[in-house]
Amino acid sequence: MSTTLERPALGTPRKVSASKDSRTLLKSQIRTGWALLAPALLHSGIFIVIPVIAVLVLSLTNYSFGDTWAWVGFGNYADLFRDVDFQASLWHTVLYAIVVIPISMAISLAVAIGLNQKIRGLSFFRTAFYIPTVTATVAVATIWLWIYNPGSGLANGFLSLFGFAPNRWLADPATALPSLMVVGIWQGLGTKVIIYLAALQGVSRDLLESSEIDGANRWQKFANVTWPAIGPVQFFVLITSIVGTFQVFDLVYVMTQGGPGSETRVLVMDIYQNAFQDLKLGYASAETVIMMIVIAVFIGVGRLLQKADAND
């Protein structure tokens, strides 16, 4: 008895069916993908795309909450570049970012490395460093207002132990912005420390042990193994820090209101002042567009630095 295996006479329809099934599956997957994406897209559309378009359009008008408004083209932008308050605010914001970002990143990394060791009271220290992050900025600012109080504040009290004369921290044009920077650095540590800590715990033990066997010292291990390994996290911290420092507002609003004079006036404060105190919404929108561009430039520079670092 012989058995012959014959090709199915109607092989083609089966192929067609398989292909059809595959297309159906693909369509189904696409539909599912869109369905899953829909909430996020809807959210982004309503809360990001529409407001951005609205800001761009408003920035070309002189709208000021009144009944009438007119197109002014790029008039608001031209005015901004002649506006000394805007220039001062931009400069203070950039300066704040340039000082606060690297210092806070460096301190956070150092603290994270410390917290990554097997030391006593680790949980306590981790909690202590994270507390400023979860505390409302208004409360933080109020505490720091007391610390900086020229008469009864902790800062002057502490420095007087070493014979330093009392300082009028927030009322002195020379020390007002640096005083705010100190608070900004302190407040931002918690989040960065947690992120760095997670990254440090992800560094390959094998690589660290290998380098140790090869005779690398602590610094060499850090520079050649740890630092490259946490590169992507560095970039994430950098980006979030840039966005965060450029959006600093509540701290300044509570502690100095932008003063003395305009010594601590920052971009968001200026935008708020123009929009909600001076009621120049069109002008404030143009300022917001400029801020977005500046943040994009800073992120671009950060990206280039990251690439250069990675290539090294």
């Binding site: 308050d85 044009p173 932008g258 003063g259 003395p260 004079g261 305009s262 006036r265 002042q273 105190q277 001076d278 009621l279 120049k280």
Partner: peptide, 16 residues
């Protein structure tokens, strides 16, 4: 409304 803030800032700058 705009001048109120301008006065406060600029007079302070002059005084200081």
């Amino acid at each position: 409304l705009e001048m109120r803030g301008n006065f406060d800032i600029q007079l302070t700058q002059a005084v200081l």
